[in-house]
Nucleic acid binder design. Structure first.
Lengths: 210, 210
DNA sequence: GTAAGTATGTAACATTTGTTACTTGAAAAA
DNA sequence: TTTTTCAAGTAACAAATGTTACATACTTAC
């Protein structure tokens, strides 16, 4: 049994399914920054996350990015399901936020299990539900929050999935994730610092009271 | 057989399933503006749209709205599926954009059919996929377009689902759908008129070259 | 008809966000 | 050490959006 499979999925799947997963799925370790899936890719397998976190992004016509949400261990990427089922191209980019361990399930098994295991069907539908909710939260964030609030939320989310209140990043990288400019990020970070919500260092930011 | 069921769903479902739908589903006609589902509602049945169109909205903490997308005949509301399956509250509001005819499917049947009919399972998964794509398009619109572009897209979409290039609405209503102010809408509509993209009247707007 | 209510137009101004340009200081490379 | 590159701070300005206030014209109620 692959380490982490038991821990994250045992309460979801029956033993027989867990056994099939560990037999058929291919274990994979990817480093931070690794692009698991890109926009336009055809997906032939679906990832179950054992540990780590994945950043899900959308791209505009100019090729600029926007973060949608983070996905953590115990989850899968519902957009993958979508793509696998429909045999269509990926609409999003998935990038490893940290070093990440996953199990890849080939598309045929995925569909086979939909009929064979009730727990698998529930998991797939549940994943859709979760991702739908994440997407709606992303809409809320983008549509209803001002940039300083979005920035603060982003920092907190990032600290959360990295399990570290010291975030290692640059203003430039943040600007790319939030689809704004470096100058705007620097300005608002400075404001957050004067409000005692964060502390700024070179190449890193510390969240106060996470 | 209910009129419209055959026309919109015959190519999707096998005859036996169509028969079950027409026997078990309850036919309903709702007028424009009717709230089919509100935020926080528990959903006990799922609508199949026979004719008309539905506007799907999200709400901020202050109770102000934002349109996500329109859903047309031949579709269902995937958020409903989500809610039915998970027995959770609705995250969105669904309002009849036009007079609309629907068939309501009770939640138990919905789940029963998932196992009984392969075409139903495909339809549910396909609907999830469609709605996921719609949501992503909504994100694109909100995040990447400026207000004048969003406004023009909104008008075109609205004309489309109403099958009429003359849109009957007020600037105030548009402002509510786009989560902005009436003054901004008036200003940008005037700009679109000088660009010969629309023609303004009292209580209505005509789209040029739809 | 008159009055009241509603939709729209528009000016003036505030706030938020985006852009350009330049500076300073730290880290990395030579 | 010196040079170069990179990250960050900041000023000045531009553009987009939001807000307040008021005028005008059309519609409805009386």
């Amino acid at each position: 049994m692959i380490e982490g499979l038991q821990r994250n999925y045992a309460y979801l799947f029956e033993d027989e399914l867990l056994k099939e997963i560990s037999e058929i799925g291919t274990y994979k370790e990817v480093p931070e920054g690794f692009i698991l899936m890109d926009i336009g890719d055809y997906i032939k397998s679906m990832p179950l996350i054992l540990s780590g976190a994945i950043k899900v992004m959308r791209e505009d016509e100019k090729g600029d990015d926007l973060i949608l949400y983070f996905v953590e261990q115990g989850d899968t990427c519902a957009m993958t399901i979508t793509c696998c089922m429909g045999e269509t191209k990926s609409e999003i980019r998935a990038v490893a936020e940290t070093d990440t361990r996953i199990i890849m399930i080939p598309i045929q098994k995925m569909q086979e299990w939909m009929h064979k295991y009730k727990s698998w069907q529930s998991f797939i539908l549940q994943s859709y539900h979760e991702r739908m909710k994440e997407l709606l939260e992303a809409v809320d964030t983008i549509a209803f929050l001002k940039m300083d609030e979005r920035l603060y939320k982003y920092l907190r989310d990032k600290a959360m999935v990295n399990r570290d209140d010291l975030i290692k990043t640059t203003h430039q990288e943040i600007a790319q994730d939030l689809h704004t400019s470096r100058v705007v990020v620097s300005r608002l970070l400075k404001k957050l610092e004067t409000e005692n919500k964060i502390k700024l260092y070179r190449n890193s930011i510390k969240i106060i009271n996470l």
